[in-house]
């Protein structure tokens, strides 16, 4: 198997962490992973992305070529990083933060999840946004197993936050399954 994911947002390290946890999960499953972050010269507030490749074999060329899963939490990061997506790629956006260009709605499978609103409502602290994002990814892809993501997230989570991180994963998973009733896997 070969899977390419891109997580993009503005400024924060949270989205980079989400990519790292996906890679950690792949490695826990005995797969290979490669992660390449990109950032602008701004210290804070610039468009940020991380590309993660997961493969059952050793990854030779470490850059993405056809992205299967794209997550974006800001219009400017969407515009900057929406290049290189595979046809019919799964694209997940926060509808309050991203204006998806009309043409893209035909090219890709777009899913709208109000990630920030959900995080604020269920967790109370936006620091859990990246875990909610990971939950949506679990529900929309077959790249890694849910239990491995839980294990990887527990290993990275600061002590005392495990319970909230697990709940954040559930919030993401449940929204995709119960509200969107999305039946798609890449």
């Amino acid at each position: 198997m070969h899977f390419e994911a891109r997580f993009s947002a503005v400024g924060g390290q949270g989205i980079i962490l989400a990519g790292t946890i996906l890679a950690d999960s792949a490695i826990l499953e005995g797969k290979y992973a490669a992660g390449s972050p990109t950032y602008t010269a701004q210290v804070r507030g610039g468009p940020t992305k991380v590309d993660v490749i997961v493969d059952s074999e050793q990854i030779l060329f470490p850059r993405t070529q056809e992205i299967n899963f794209f997550l974006s939490l800001a219009t400017n990061s969407y515009k900057m990083f929406c290049k290189g997506l595979a046809d019919n790629a799964v694209v997940l956006v926060d509808p309050h933060l991203v204006d998806v260009p009309e043409g893209d709605k035909e090219k890709y499978q777009i899913f709208e999840v109000p990630v920030i609103e959900l995080t604020a409502e269920h967790l109370g602290r936006l620091v859990y946004t990246s875990a909610v994002c990971l939950g949506t990814m679990i529900a929309l892809t077959d790249v890694v197993k849910e239990e491995t993501v839980r294990e990887a997230l527990k290993r990275r989570a600061p002590r005392g936050t495990e319970m909230y991180n697990m709940k954040a994963l559930d919030v993401g998973i449940n929204y995709v399954r119960d509200i969107l009733k999305a039946d798609v896997k890449v």
Binding site: T20, A33, A34, G35, S36, P62, R63
Partner: peptide, 9 residues
């Protein structure tokens, strides 16, 4: 830069 910033196992 590719190798410096690339994360892998």
């Amino acid at each position: 830069e590719v190798l410096g910033h690339l994360s892998e196992g």
